[in-house]
Design a binder for these strands. Structure first.
Lengths: 255, 255
DNA sequence: TTTGACCCTGACGCCACGTCAACGTCATAA
DNA sequence: TTATGACGTTGACGTGGCGTCAGGGTCAAA
């Protein structure tokens, strides 16, 4: 037989056979005068052995050890290990599919955006600040999703409590939407825009009302603290947040 | 943030972050004067997005498309495809584990050899010609295993029928074992060894008795036919088979 | 003589990074 | 002041089981 016949016989590619030669898992047969490999049934048997081992999940190295009768590890031991490995893979696949099913389920409810791949218990909060077409609200959503996926990237409980206020009171929620729209209008504005001051007061009022009670009087209202979280906002928008923090700090001190 | 902080924040390696930059799935942040990358929360959010998509099973290319809002393929479509793929993997793993369980089960019964990884219905026949320490019997076993795993590599039904004769009749079986032992003794012998002739007659008798009835008088008994299957035997052993074939052919003609 | 179906070796591609190597930077301790 | 050690930088190779060229040679049939 030549290599093509052998490969066809075993249902593999010629590349596979040559690869097995190169890996030393299948001995090189004698060559004809023209350099072609000449195979016999002996080689077919050897190749069949390799294939059965490989199809059971052994690596080529392991298959070579088994075939060479390398006593370093017995076949049952290897097979048991492979089975454990497959079991682990199966669990992972099931987990993945479960998560995928969740995401796909939500995809049928509404339109599936990037953030809708977040964990389910966060979704309720995300819907609350789902102000359509608002870049500023989108940024807050992103931050929430980040905090959801990262332990320690901010104080999740407190932040969620803040948005929780938006959820429970329809009136407050409407005010929140209004706030985000106002923030959106500042996307192209200068930090000194006259709309910045009033909007900062709105934010300060809201925060005092809904967050301060939870935090207690000892809370830090340090402008530095929020600075890292502002780099996704436009200059004027960031300025709103900074002024709001300063307003709150001042009010807290004189309280 | 510097790259180490960002990576730790998201629970990935710095190599992963740099890889994402290189693949264009995460934008390069500005550099400090010393060349260090300087990240903000914007980048953390972007990285979190990538990670969620990747953990759902998207490739980096797909993740890039989704993030860049490439409308070529919608996210649900991709996710559905991934799920189908995972389902296929799960089926394959289950199949593999089932086969592994079979093999491991048999491993508990007797010692687990290479050929015991063959299909179960072949095992009955393999046990029949399990003449301990017989290289010649091992070769026949190998050929059977090969025929089992390969459609068209010989006439399986007829060959199995031949060994079936060995199975059903204890007396015949004993003769078979005797034959293999005789064949083993010829491992180092010359093709002209005096033991070759008698052993060829034993084989011819056996074949006439058990195989000929099944094949019918039209069967070819061409010495060429079996030649490819003899390359795993020693010269004297192969000679036994050749002479047996010639004996049978002669008897069939004069029949 | 020309196809076309084979064969040969060698090398790169895949996928998502891990892991050096060889180097610069920077804060802190001796 | 220097030495140490923990960071950062780019670049290149390794992983596994082959697929897929590229650039040749061989050989039987038309």
């Amino acid at each position: 037989m030549r290599i093509g016949e052998l490969a066809a016989l075993l249902g593999v590619s010629t590349r596979t056979v040559r690869h097995y030669h190169h890996q030393g898992v299948l001995p090189e047969p004698p060559r004809l005068a023209n350099g072609y490999r000449e195979y016999g049934m002996r080689d077919a048997v050897a190749l069949a052995r390799v294939r059965r081992l490989v199809e059971l999940g052994l690596s080529l190295d392991e298959a070579r050890d088994v075939i060479d009768d390398d006593r370093s590890r017995a076949l049952p031991e290897i097979l048991a290990e492979i089975d454990a490995d497959l079991a682990a893979q199966e669990r992972e696949i099931r987990l993945k599919r479960a998560r995928l099913a969740e995401v796909l389920q939500r995809a049928e409810d509404g339109s599936l955006g990037l953030d809708d791949t977040a964990s389910p218990d966060l979704l309720a909060f995300l819907r609350i600040i789902d102000v359509p077409a608002s870049r500023a609200a989108a940024w807050d959503r992103d931050l929430l999703v980040l905090m959801d996926s990262v332990p320690g990237a901010g104080d999740r409980g407190r932040v969620l409590a803040m948005f929780d206020g938006l959820a429970t009171d329809p009136d407050t929620r409407a005010r929140g939407h209004e706030f985000y729209r106002g923030l959106d209008e500042l996307a192209e504005a200068e930090p000194g825009d006259p709309r910045v001051g009033p909007l900062a007061e709105v934010l300060a009022d809201y925060s005092m009302e809904h967050v301060l009670a939870d935090l207690g009087p000892g809370a830090r209202w340090d402008p530095e603290m929020v600075e890292p979280f502002l780099d996704g906002l436009a200059p004027a928008q960031a300025e709103v947040v900074r002024r709001a923090i300063r307003l709150i700090a001042a009010r807290v001190r004189s309280w």
